[in-house]
C-alpha cells in the first residue's frame, strides 16, 4: 500500500511517501504561518519527481489533524482533502499528539504535549509498550493543572513534545522527557500510524474531515465572556 502523509501542524512540516516494507521518502522542512501555503505544493512536486512516484499510485492519504497552527492545519489538510477527493481515496487522520506518542516507545504512561494559548497545553495520554493505546483523549489544560496531575502519578511517565521550561524545572523523579529530535512529529511515524488506523477501519471520507483545533477563535472566546455560551 502506498501512502502520502503530510504534517503542517507546527514549524517543522513534513511530506512523506511511504510504502509498507519497501521505501520511504521523507522531506522535513521548516515553515512559518506565512509560507505553509507557498511551499507545500512545490515541496510535494519535488518529492514526487525525486521518488518517481505518481499521485495516481497513492492508495491512502494521511494527515495530522491537529492540534497546532490554525493556518498550518488548514493548508496541509486542504491539500490532502483535495487530492483524496480527486483520486477518490480514503484519508486517515491521527492527531499530532497521537503521532508523538506513537514514535516514542516507553514502558510507562506517555503524555503528549503541545503549547496552546498562554499558560495552557494541548494534552493527551497513551501507553505503547505492547499495543498502542490512547488513555485520555486531547484536551486543553493549564500548566498548573498539568503539574498537579504529574505530581500525584504513581508510575514512570514520559513527556513528549514542546515542553515549556517551567514544566521541565518542576518535574518529579519518576517523570522524564524525550530528546529534542524525538519531540516533533516525524513523517514516517505519521504514515505508519495512519496505516495502522486505516487497517482498523479508522478512516474518513475526504468531504467529512476537518482539523482538530482544540480551541475556539479569540473572537468566540471574547463573545462568550460577554454573552455566555452560544447555542
Amino acid at each position: 500500500m502506498r501512502i502520502l502523509a503530510i504534517d503542517t501542524a507546527t514549524k517543522q512540516s513534513s511530506i512523506t511517501l511511504w510504502e509498507n516494507d519497501k521505501e520511504i521518502w521523507e522531506f522535513l522542512f521548516a515553515t512559518s504561518s506565512k509560507d505553509y501555503g507557498e511551499t507545500i505544493l512545490l515541496n510535494l512536486d519535488m518529492l514526487l519527481r525525486r521518488s518517481n512516484w505518481n499521485l495516481e499510485d497513492i492508495d491512502l492519504y494521511v494527515i495530522s489533524k491537529g492540534p497546532g497552527s490554525f493556518t498550518g492545519l488548514r493548508i496541509g489538510m486542504m491539500v490532502i482533502k483535495t487530492l483524496a477527493q480527486v483520486f477518490n481515496k480514503p484519508i486517515s487522520a491521527p492527531s499530532y499528539l497521537d503521532v508523538l506518542a506513537y514514535q516514542n516507545k516507553f514502558p510507562g504512561i506517555i503524555f503528549s504535549i503541545l503549547p496552546a494559548r498562554k499558560n495552557e497545553l494541548h494534552l493527551a495520554s497513551y501507553r505503547n509498550w505492547k499495543d498502542f493505546q490512547k488513555i485520555e483523549k486531547e484536551e486543553v489544560v493549564s500548566i498548573e493543572e498539568f503539574l498537579k496531575r504529574i505530581n500525584i502519578l504513581q508510575e514512570e511517565a514520559l513527556l513528549v513534545g514542546e515542553i515549556p521550561e517551567e514544566i521541565k524545572m518542576k518535574l518529579p523523579n519518576n517523570v522524564i522527557f524525550t530528546s529534542k529530535s524525538s519531540s516533533f512529529l516525524r513523517g514516517a511515524s505519521l504514515a505508519e500510524l495512519g496505516f495502522l488506523m486505516f487497517n482498523k477501519g479508522e478512516y474518513f471520507d475526504p468531504l467529512e474531515l476537518n482539523p482538530y483545533y482544540g480551541q475556539k477563535s479569540s473572537a468566540e472566546i471574547n463573545w462568550e465572556k460577554l454573552h455566555g455560551k452560544k447555542e
Binding site: F70, T71, R74, M77, M78, K81, T82, Q85, P206, L207, N210, P211, Y213, S217, S218, A219, E220, W223, K230
Partner: peptide, 24 residues
C-alpha cells in the same frame, strides 16, 4: 452576524468545512 462583523478565524474554519463539498 452575532459578532457584528466578519471574524477572520471563524471565516477560515467555515471555508475549510464547505469548500470541497461545494466543489463536489
Amino acid at each position: 452576524k452575532i459578532f457584528g462583523g466578519v471574524v477572520p478565524e471563524v471565516a477560515s474554519r467555515l471555508h475549510m468545512e464547505v469548500l470541497n463539498k461545494i466543489f463536489k
